[in-house]
């Protein structure tokens, strides 16, 4: 009789022990592919420091939103933010985690990185199929000193739905009313021309392989693949090059404090130095999480990443969130997420 009781107690103790180990070790998340490199770098360093790991499936923003709505993960990650009303409908909290930039890349003989300058309207016209040749009038007018070949241009874009495409098309829609009315913005749009390649690496590979082509990728991919990026003319009409300073300038101009649910799309920001196609990536979590312990662990990880992950982010060409925004986000956590 006593023995039975004892065994039962031991069993219960063992089970709860195992359960608590499991929740402490596993922060589960799923979503956007764009921040995957930095999330995994943070996770490695975090695990070394605390012993807690992160299990992040980079399955795409759309799938990440679906996973968090199905409550199979503790947090979801998306490049395309949810609107305030959608957040409220499903009881989710949202905040920006890290930022990045998208750059146009070209492969034209004799053109060096940063030599060519594009303006949003021209970029949109190229993606609409209205600029058919490398030396199209619109391009020539912007670059009077650059010699361009008269060959047909191949437009490269994403074939999979993606947050990169969402931000890129959002910029094109802001820059060109023609694009806005004909195509619009979204994770997958009705491309009028071009070849589709899978993922940032697919677009990078394609542009590198195809002479006289143009594409758009996350800055890190352009840098790693040594692609010829272009300069851009920003909203203020100034010529900017894709540098960390230009990305930070765009980020600093965003008014996070007055955007409900941190719904901010960072494209086409004002400011003389702002890079026009900058993007933030977001985290989604339930305000009243079913597994409070797991949510606490996840928030600990995010807090740690904000505090100590900035340098790692810059090493991978991401832009850490400004300190003021981190303060706001931490206040949001305390106010909204009932993890205790």
């Amino acid at each position: 009789m006593y023995l039975n009781k004892f065994l039962g107690l031991a069993l219960v103790a063992g089970l709860t022990g195992a359960a608590s180990v499991a929740t402490a070790a596993d922060i589960t998340g799923a979503g956007a592919t764009f921040p995957f490199p930095i999330y995994s770098k943070w996770a490695d360093a975090y695990k070394k420091e605390t012993g807690n790991g992160l299990n992040y499936q980079s399955i795409g923003s759309g799938a990440g939103i679906k996973q968090i709505q199905a409550k199979t993960v503790t947090f979801g990650a998306t490049d395309a933010p949810l609107k305030k009303e959608d957040l409220d409908k499903s009881g989710l909290a949202q905040w920006p985690m890290v930022m990045g930039a998208i750059v146009p890349v070209v492969n034209i003989d004799g053109i060096t990185p940063g030599e060519l300058v594009l303006v949003g309207k021209t970029l949109a016209a190229t993606y609409l199929g209205n600029v058919k040749k490398c030396d199209g009038d619109a391009v020539k007018r912007l670059n009077p000193k650059v010699t361009l070949p008269g060959t047909a241009i191949t437009v490269v874009r994403r074939s999979d739905g993606s947050g990169t495409t969402f931000n890129f098309t959002d910029y094109l829609a802001k820059a060109s009313s023609d694009w806005q009315s004909k195509i619009g913005s979204g994770q997958a749009v009705e491309w009028p021309v071009g070849v589709g390649a899978r993922g940032n690496d697919g677009v990078a590979g394609n542009v590198a392989q195809t002479k006289n082509s143009i594409g758009y990728v996350e800055y890190a991919y352009a840098k790693q693949n040594k692609l010829t990026y272009t300069g851009m003319v920003n909203k203020a009409g100034k010529h900017v090059q894709p540098t960390i300073e230009a990305f930070q300038a765009a980020a600093a101009n965003a008014d996070w404090a007055h955007s409900p649910g941190y719904y901010q799309i960072l494209t086409d920001q004002p400011g003389d130095k702002s890079w026009p196609i900058t993007a933030a990536t977001f985290i989604l979590m339930y305000k009243e999480p079913a597994d409070k312990a797991a949510a606490t662990e996840a928030l600990k990880f995010f807090g740690w990443s904000y505090d100590k992950g900035g340098k790692m982010a810059e090493e991978l060409d991401y832009i850490p969130m400004p300190t003021s925004v981190v303060g706001l986000v931490k206040k949001t956590w305390a106010d909204e997420i009932k993890s205790k």
Partner: peptide
């Protein structure tokens, strides 16, 4: 010119699709 197949379209777009798409 580029084109697409049924299976390529599904493979490319399924993960990021929802609703009617």
């Amino acid at each position: 010119a580029p084109g697409t197949t049924i299976s390529a379209a599904i493979a490319s777009e399924f993960a990021e699709s929802d609703g009617l798409h």
